[in-house]
Design a protein around this nucleic acid. Structure first.
Lengths: 201, 201
DNA sequence: AAATTATAAAATGTATACATTTTTATTTGT
DNA sequence: ACAAATAAAAATGTATACATTTTATAATTT
């Protein structure tokens, strides 16, 4: 959508990262002029960045989200529905090289730093989503990634128990070509993420 | 997102309707200058309109979509997942006034003109989606409405058999507070829509 | 003639100026 | 002192000019 390297794209990433890092007060109104001065560009690319952030739900009426528990649950309900379905597909369609990559993610997550664990876990889920071969599903989940990032950070930095073990089980179900089990395990896994995060907050 | 009555919004609606009506050749590249002259506004509101159309998937790289069968199936797969889930929720949560509205939609669809049937059927599905009380789910389906419109038009104008009968059955399952049945019937209903549309095209 | 590079032109990206709307602050009336 | 009305200002919406990139066309080379 936004071209990489463009002022709009850079503005988007910059503002997004500040929101995700908590650099803005929750509920703070972000104005175009303020951000334009801040980043040393005109309002035009800022507007495009803000539009995208609104789409993602990181801004609501130009205000930094302050998600209620219900908001988080709603997001996860949709995520669970879509990713569990993708996981069922994975059990049917994943090829050998994808399975190997999936396995590699688990290994990385067992040995890496927190940032490496987060990257490996994201890739684990991305691989499964992409194995659906459904572009609409992929893009729908893509749009939720910023919110999902908040959860991922929580579960990794607060060391949710069994996180990687569950990935291992999911991997085995996919490898064993058991769609029903793979789907159910993904559901359980994401519900556990949600449950943990809501309490850790 | 776009303010109602703004030039951006009007441009969006205008271009969207032309695409949905087939007024543009499939694959035609829509340029900002061309559309701006066409609508008598500057490029600025046109750009915002085009962004939104890209989000919805009506444009790809500024080109009018020419959806493959796979694209349509992918869209429907996601729709089925989300609406079937919403339908399950409906069986648990819908209140009396919503049920009455739902029933009214069925009646309108049995007696109205094609345009009235389309409006009533859209409302039938909207009511069920909204009964989920899940804003993320609602907005996700909202974004798919333009594509869904194409299907709705096909099944109504080509008079797909049992269309309204299936709505009736879904209504009864919701009224009977049977979540599993409501979900299954919605799945079957949407799969039948897809099947019919793919053959009617 | 096919492929490659160079050139022109068209389209998009960005900045800025102006118009309109929305918000905030102030005044006025009760 | 409070509410409604109003004026000021701040923010967003739109138009336009300029910059950069992309695409199409023509020229050149093999």
């Amino acid at each position: 959508m936004l071209k990489k390297g463009s002022a709009s794209q850079k503005a988007y990433e910059h503002i997004r990262d500040k929101i995700l890092n908590g650099d803005y007060e929750k509920g703070k109104k972000l104005t175009e002029v303020m951000l334009a001065e801040d980043l040393g560009v005109s309002r035009t690319p800022i507007r495009e960045a803000l539009k995208k952030l609104e789409e993602e739900g990181l801004l609501v009426n130009k205000r930094v989200i302050n998600p209620s528990e219900k908001d988080l649950i709603n997001t996860f309900d949709v995520r669970i529905l879509l990713e569990a379905h993708a996981c069922r597909c994975a059990a049917s369609f994943m090829d050998a090289s994808e399975l190997q990559e999936l396995s590699a993610c688990i290994h990385e997550a067992r040995t890496g730093s927190n940032e490496e664990i987060m990257a490996a876990n994201k890739r684990f889920h991305d691989l499964i989503v992409h194995s659906s071969r459904n572009k609409v599903l992929i893009e729908t989940i893509e749009r939720m990634q910023s919110i999902i990032f908040l959860f991922r950070r929580t579960v990794v930095y607060h060391k949710r128990p069994h996180l990687i073990d569950e990935h291992e089980e999911i991997f085995q179900a996919i490898e064993a070509r058991d769609p029903a089990l793979a789907e159910q395990l993904m559901k359980d896994h994401l519900r556990a993420d949600l449950e943990f995060s809501l309490h850790a907050w």
